Amino acid sequence: MQKIILLLALITFSITSAQTKKKQILLIGTFHYANPGLDVAQLNNFNIMSEKSQKELEIMSEKIKKFGPDKIFVEWEFKKQAELDQFYNKNTDSLFKNNKSEITQLALRTAKKLNHKKLYGMNLYTRFPYDSLMMSMEKANQKDLIAKNKAITENFEKQHNEKIRKSSLQEMMLYYNTKQAENENLQWYLEVANRAGNPDDFTGPSLVSNWYKRNLYMYSIIQKLTESTDNKIMILVGAGHAALIREYITHDPTFELVELSTVLK
C-alpha cells in the first residue's frame, strides 16, 4: 500500500513539474542590418556582407543552433505569412549573398541549420506619427522638450555610429541586448513623447500607447503560436520592440528569458 501511495505521489509530482516547467525564450534585439533609413535616428550601415561579419554570423547561428529553439519568430508582417514561407524556400545561398536583412542573415540561417520548415512572422505594422508629435511640441511652445528630443536623438546616432566603426557584429549585437541599451530605447517614450503638446493635446500619449499596444499585439501572436510541444523559442526583432517584449515576458509565468550573452559566450 505504501508503495502504491509513493508511486502516485511521484506521478503527481512529475505531472505538476511538467505543467509548471517554463518555456525558454531567447529574445534578440537588433539594429537593422539593411538599414532603410526610415527610422527617426539616421544610423550608419554596418558592412554585414564583409567576410568577417559572415564568419561571425556562422558562429552565432551555430551557437543558437546549440540552444535549440523549436520556433523562430521574426519581424515580418503576420498577415503576410504566405510571403514569408515563399521567401524561406528560395535559394538559400543566393539569399545570403544578396539579402542583408537580419531575418535572412541570422534568423533564416539559424532555422536552416535546425531543419525548420518555416519562420514565423509576428509583426503588426502601425503608423508612427512622429511629424504630428513635433507639431504638438511646437504648438505648445515646448522649446526645452524639442531641444531634449534633438539631443537624445543625436546622442543615440553618435553612440551607434561610433560603435559601428569600432565593433564587430557580435559586439554590436551584445550591446543592443544590454539593459542599458534597452532602457535607453524605452526612455524616449516617457521622457519626451508622452510629455508632448498642451495639456488637452494627447498626440504624445496616443503615440506612446499605440507603440505599447503594437508590441503587446505582437507578443499575443507569439503566445498563441507557441505550442505545448515547444520548449524553446527565439524572437528576433528591432531593439525598440525587444525592450518592451522583455517586460511582457518577465511578467508571464509561462516563459523565462534566456540572455543572448549566455548563448554566445
Rank of each mutant, 00 (worst) to 15 (best):
L169Q: 01
S168N: 10
E154R: 08
K163Q: 12
N155C: 09
N185K: 10
I164D: 07
L174M: 03
A196F: 03
A193N: 04
A151H: 10
Q159D: 08
Y189S: 03
Y175Q: 02
N183V: 14
L169K: 00
K158R: 09
I152N: 04
E171D: 03
E184T: 10
E182C: 10
E182I: 08
T153G: 10
Q170G: 05
D200N: 14
L169M: 05
R165C: 13
W188A: 06
R195E: 12
E162H: 12
N161C: 11
Y175I: 02
N177F: 01
T178P: 01
E154L: 13
D201Q: 09
N149L: 14
Y175G: 00
D200A: 13
N198A: 15
Q180V: 15
E182F: 09
E191C: 10
S168K: 08
N177S: 04
N194P: 11
N198E: 13
L174Y: 00
N194L: 13
K163E: 08
E157C: 05
E171Y: 02
I164P: 07
P199Y: 07
Q180Y: 14
N198W: 08
Q170L: 09
L169P: 00
Q187C: 04
N194V: 15
E184A: 11
Q170Y: 06
P199V: 07
R165M: 14
Q187H: 08
Y175W: 07
L174V: 02
Q159I: 09
V192R: 00
K150P: 10
A151S: 13
E191P: 05
Y175A: 02
K179S: 15
Q159G: 04
A196Y: 02
H160C: 03
K158V: 04
N149F: 12
D200C: 10
N198D: 13
E191L: 09
